[in-house]
Write a protein that binds this DNA or RNA. Sequence first.
DNA 1: ATTGGAATGTTATAATATATCACTATGAAC
DNA 2: GTTCATAGTGATATATTATAACATTCCAAT
Lengths: 152, 152
Amino acid sequence: MSFQSHNHRQCIKRGVQHATDQCEKAGLQLTPIRQRVLELLLTEHRALGAYDILEKLSEDGWKSQPPVAYRALDFLVQHGFAHKVERLNAFIACTTPETNHNPAFLICRICEAVAEIHPQLSRGALGRTAKDAGFVIEQAVVEAEGVCPNCR
Amino acid sequence: MSFQSHNHRQCIKRGVQHATDQCEKAGLQLTPIRQRVLELLLTEHRALGAYDILEKLSEDGWKSQPPVAYRALDFLVQHGFAHKVERLNAFIACTTPETNHNPAFLICRICEAVAEIHPQLSRGALGRTAKDAGFVIEQAVVEAEGVCPNCR
DNA sequence: ATTGGAATGTTATAATATATCACTATGAAC
DNA sequence: GTTCATAGTGATATATTATAACATTCCAAT
């Protein structure tokens, strides 16, 4: 859980390693830009906007235009290495890439930290209501905003 | 449930009536623009972007600029007469204004219909996970995308 | 060597959202 | 009745987020 103090260097390392392995296995290209964007996302448990990413890329010497950031982010999201937080129009590295994915997010409105969690929603009230309505859920955005334990 | 066939005229009437009453009671001003925007939202069980609203307003003869739409929408959202669908960056009229509010949405990716539902999330897996983490949820965005019964 | 695909570079622009200041009307306080 | 404060609206400008479209590069397969 990203709210708790933890060895953060490990998060970054694990994230990159997992993406590297996954891409290797699936024949995907974790190109320098894609890897760099993933690293940038992994450096904080906070959601970054595409333009934040762009700015950081340009600090690295990449003088990139918006599509570059969006393409890299799309790639990462598409393959589960990152997620989009709709509430913030921003992106965050996946912190549980091993887990089967129906991520939900806890967003602290004070420190902006974001934690990825995995409640079993489909079995709960939402899934039941949808089923009763004859609605087939393909994807669910679940984002709770509030105050994290550290900011209380 | 907005997916089912129903007397839709009733939806509009009820929505406007409820807002009128509520505003009366609470000393809020349901001004012509605010009421018109609410009506526009109520005419479809679909989310409309602020600029869709603007366009429709201008068809009515209001030659309005973006802030006009956003202000009206903010008012409606703030007082629970409408909701923002984050996934779509768009707005939808509240269809259950009487109910206590923790709305969730079912969004059909085919016909774009949106249904507002009220699962008891806080009691479910999400609430439990948050509580265990020491996170206090103030507001939750829950938006499921999939296929509605009519489009299957 | 040529072709075809995937990634990136580049320019332009679309779509969504807000800051700011000016103006108007209304009603409360004096 | 005038003054004042407030809420709403009008209007201009600009910020923020996102994508379309086309050119270029690189590499692998034929």
